[in-house]
């Protein structure tokens, strides 16, 4: 590892441990880490904006006449800092909201509402089509012929059996089809009952109430799944950090993890002893 790599590992590990120290209680290491994170992000964004937008799109613009109006609209946003003329920023907001909703409403309506409605609009029951039934007859015939010609154990017979089995699944009302139908029905029930739950202009009484309770059940299943996924996601993040902490604990990283840990614990114990830590709220 080069010196630069080692310095990077020390920095990454140090900041990780600083932020993890919040699990014990709020402390200056955590605050330092948090503020550094915010500062670095904002600095990075500023540099990127200047070099990726301001210089190529505004400063070196091909046609200044096209650039000036948006730049003026952008600058009007800054009038919010001057209370007397802050009303000017409304012009910018009017532009942003007008442009944004003009762009968003049709796109969202098409991709989110119409497409999803289309996917929900499915036949609740499916029956084999004429073509599928024909394919089943053909497959059964091939199987019988192959069996007669090659016997029961030949690989060709096995292949024909497999083909006949899959043809049977689509050519008859099989469990595969039943499973798909049940899924469709559950989906349909879910969409309907949840939307019913969010109806505000009718009283939820009698059957409507029962139906909207079903909607709540669907919502709870969704939230349960979401909760589980969130936990899993957080573990993935923790795993990655622990991996780095482990990587930095060896001799090739100059024992970054143990050294930083010992120093941190030392300072925290010292602060605890001198009573400085009691000013911070704990968990």
């Amino acid at each position: 590892m080069s010196f630069g790599d080692i310095a990077g590992l020390w920095l990454a590990t140090g900041l990780t441990l600083f932020l993890f120290s919040f699990l014990y209680r709020d402390n200056p290491f955590y605050k330092l880490g948090e503020h550094l994170y915010l500062g670095v992000t904002i600095g990075y964004m500023l540099v990127k904006l200047v070099y990726e937008t301001w210089i190529p799109k505004v400063w070196n613009a091909e046609n200044y006449a096209l650039v000036i109006p948006p730049v003026i609209i952008g600058f009007l946003l800054l009038t919010r800092f001057v209370p007397k003329v802050s009303w000017l920023s409304r012009w910018s907001f009017a532009f942003i909201i007008g442009y944004g909703s003009g762009l968003a409403i049709p796109a969202t309506f098409t991709s989110i509402i119409l497409k999803q409605a289309e996917a929900t609009t499915r036949p609740l029951v499916t029956v084999p089509t004429a073509a599928e039934q024909k394919a089943l007859e053909a497959a059964e015939k091939t199987l019988a012929d192959t069996r007669a010609a090659r016997g029961n154990e030949a690989p060709e017979t096995r292949a024909a059996e497999k083909a006949a089995l899959s043809a049977r699944r689509s050519g008859t009302y099989s469990w595969v089809r039943a499973y798909a139908d049940v899924t469709t029905i559950i989906l349909f029930l879910g969409v309907f009952s949840v939307l019913f739950y969010f109806f505000f202009s009718i009283e939820h009484k009698g059957p409507v109430r029962i139906f909207s309770r079903v909607g709540v059940l669907f919502l709870m299943i969704y939230f349960g799944a979401s909760y589980g996924y969130t936990v899993m996601g957080r573990f993935a993040l923790l795993y990655d950090r622990l991996l780095d902490v482990r990587k930095a604990s060896g001799g090739d990283a100059w024992f970054a993890t143990p050294i930083i840990l010992v120093l941190m614990i030392g300072v925290l114990v010292w602060r605890h002893r001198t009573g400085k830590a009691s000013e911070e709220p704990s968990h």
């Binding site: 409605a117 929900t120 609009t121 499915r122 036949p123 609740l124 029951v125 499916t126 029956v127 349909f188 969409v191 309907f192």
Partner: peptide
């Protein structure tokens, strides 16, 4: 959606 589902199911059946 209801109309589509009912008609679609009828079309299949």
């Amino acid at each position: 959606i209801l109309l589509g589902t009912v008609v679609g199911s009828a079309a299949v059946v």
